[in-house]
Structures are given as structure tokens and as C-alpha cells.
């Protein structure tokens, strides 16, 4: 059994079947991330019900989006293991997403008034 796995991992290098050995980082960080995500969701819940009507709704919406991005950081970084990957792999995935989203949001904000139904 173990002989089989060692030949696969360290023997002749075949790109299609090459598997870097998986490393366990323990479960402590995973549970910590869960409590952070749960905490942020509870903060969302509290803000939703206790936002004073005297303050602008735009500020509330920006807060929700920022909290969403924080949640995304923890899901991608810890759960999807991305923060342990190579820097250039992170850039390969994050940069196109930022460029695409940035252009899309800028475009639709810029042309948004033209869509108005009233």
C-alpha cells in the first residue's frame, strides 16, 4: 500500500498523475474560521435590524459588502487552502477576477443611468 503511494509520488515523474503530498494543518484553524464566519453572519444580522434610519443606507450596504469580502477571504484562504499555495497561483486566480469584476462594475455604474425605467 505505502510502497504504491511512494512510487506514485516520488518515482518517475508523470505530469498527468503527479500528486504533491497533502499536508494536514490540524483542525484548530478550521474551527476558528468557522467561528469567525458565524460571528460575521451574526454581525450582519445585528446591523440589518439595528441600523439607525438617520444614517445613510448606502453606508449600511457598503458595510454588508465589506463583510461579505471578509467572509470570502476566510472561505478562499483557509477552507479552499489558497493562502498556503504559491504566490503566483494566488495572483493567477485573484487578478483576473479583480480586473473582470472591476471593469463590469465600472461599466454598469457608468452606464447605469441610461437603464433607468423612470
Amino acid at each position: 500500500m505505502s510502497a504504491h503511494s511512494t512510487t506514485e509520488n516520488t518515482g518517475e515523474y508523470i505530469p498527468e498523475t503527479y500528486i504533491p503530498t497533502a499536508v494536514s494543518h490540524g483542525t484548530g484553524e478550521l474551527w476558528k474560521t468557522f467561528w469567525i464566519l458565524l460571528g460575521i453572519t451574526i454581525v450582519d444580522f445585528i446591523i440589518y435590524f439595528s441600523w439607525p434610519s438617520s444614517m445613510p443606507m448606502m453606508a449600511r450596504n457598503i458595510t454588508f459588502i465589506c463583510l461579505g469580502i471578509v467572509k470570502a477571504y476566510f472561505i478562499i484562504g483557509t477552507f479552499m487552502h489558497l493562502k498556503y499555495e504559491r504566490m503566483f497561483m494566488i495572483l493567477m486566480l485573484i487578478l483576473p477576477a479583480i480586473v473582470f469584476l472591476g471593469m463590469l462594475i465600472f461599466g454598469l455604474l457608468h452606464e447605469g443611468n441610461a437603464l433607468s425605467t423612470y
Binding site: 497533502a22 494536514s24 494543518h25 490540524g26 483542525t27 478550521l30 474551527w31 474560521t33 468557522f34 464566519l37 458565524l38 453572519t41 472561505i75 483557509t78 477552507f79 487552502h81
Partner: peptide, 12 residues
């Protein structure tokens, strides 16, 4: 979120 945690525990 809980199902995500159990998934990551399975990976671990």
C-alpha cells in the same frame, strides 16, 4: 457554512 466545515474536516 457548517457543511463547508465538515467538508474541510474530511479533506484534513
Amino acid at each position: 457554512i457548517l457543511s463547508s466545515v465538515t467538508m474541510v474536516l474530511a479533506v484534513e
